[in-house]
Design a protein around this nucleic acid. Sequence first.
DNA 1: TCAAAGTCAATACG
DNA 2: CGTATTGACTTTGA
Length: 424
Amino acid sequence: MKGLHGKYVDYLQVDPSNTYINKYGPPQEELPEDFLDFPESPKKSSPDSSSETTPTSDVQDFSSWEPLDTDPSIHMNIVYESEAETDLPTNGVLSSMTFNHQFDVIITENERKLLAEEEFFKDSNMKIDRSSDLESAKQNGNLSQQDTANFGGKSIIQRQQINIEDGEEGNSMRTSPNCEEQENQPDSMKTLSKQKPKKVRKSRQAPLKDLHDSEVEEEIDTIDVATRIINELKIHRIPQKTFAERILCRSQGTLSDLLRKPKPWHMLKSGQETFRRMHKWLQQPITARLSILDMSPEEAAEAQGLLPPTPVPSGARKRRMNSDESEPTAKVGRFVFTAHQKQTLQAVYKSTPRPTREMHQKLAVHLEISIETVENFFMNARRRDRHRQATTQVATINETNTHQKEAEEAEILSEYESDDDLTE
DNA sequence: TCAAAGTCAATACG
DNA sequence: CGTATTGACTTTGA
């Protein structure tokens, strides 16, 4: 019963009585037609399992599944991703939870013992039960959540990994977009593969266009992606710098900004590419995600795929420097406005966001700074003002609603770090 | 040539 | 050290 050890399991089911486990994966794009259907339980399983699953004649026994307790390496550290209609935060970490939602599961070996907890997947109603692990999680008592919506007892867990104690191969890395890649077709029809119509979208206050499941334009919920990336980086202790450079081919500062202030997808231009990469990375099996991070930027770049022509036009900056860069003597640090200069400029900006060239000149003289600097100030001010406005509207409602929960999640997340082994 | 969008990357912060 | 901020550079589109 250790056939799956060391391999990816993209989907997983656990029977209502929490005794058997059904794994499916890895690479297959699609699940078997009946994957979501529990076999007709022949035994007197759980009481409330009086489901309405089509009472087909196909009687199967859960014994065909792998007994849950025979896999000692299992432990689930569930990072869930709420798709919608839930009061739960958009995502977070839970110690246990019954299904009805889709989860992003991460399993670490040294956490396996925690799974032994009989509480795991106890009921068939979605419920958060943190009694089994996370000494810390216990501190938080407000994560309980009820969600009666269920799929007739069906459950799915996505992207989970099962660690093994013996042979496993760290190959399995999948292609994914990375640096050197640049495809910006208004309608990325590049790969018409019908990937899992995993539209990462949630019910936000933002007006969402109702696209069909067609593989039209993959709309990405940037806020959701950003949140998830933040969690991933935190859980696996991946520095922004590492992720930014190896996966996104961007600088740490840029990543930080994108993560904290993600602009709505529809407001992005070429910047969509960066979010696409983050999204793509999130869709890969955990081992692949982590393995890529272990490589050098170059390796990662190639490993992940194509290195087409025009790399994102930012790779090689030509910083202004003397024609001869051999003498770093006159090291001019970055310019920084003095309090007075900044205050003056901000005051002017308030009343006049778009000063005329003459005004720019006057300000430059008055503040004793170059006109370019003045122009840059207004340009940056306008852009960041717009940006702020665009991100605030969406974030606000959401935050006020889940502020507390998120704060608690953060605590739980931090606790998980204590025994995460997948980091180097 | 100008403005906007996307970033870089120095450096301010904690 | 890792993350957030931010003045300025680069690329795009008009």
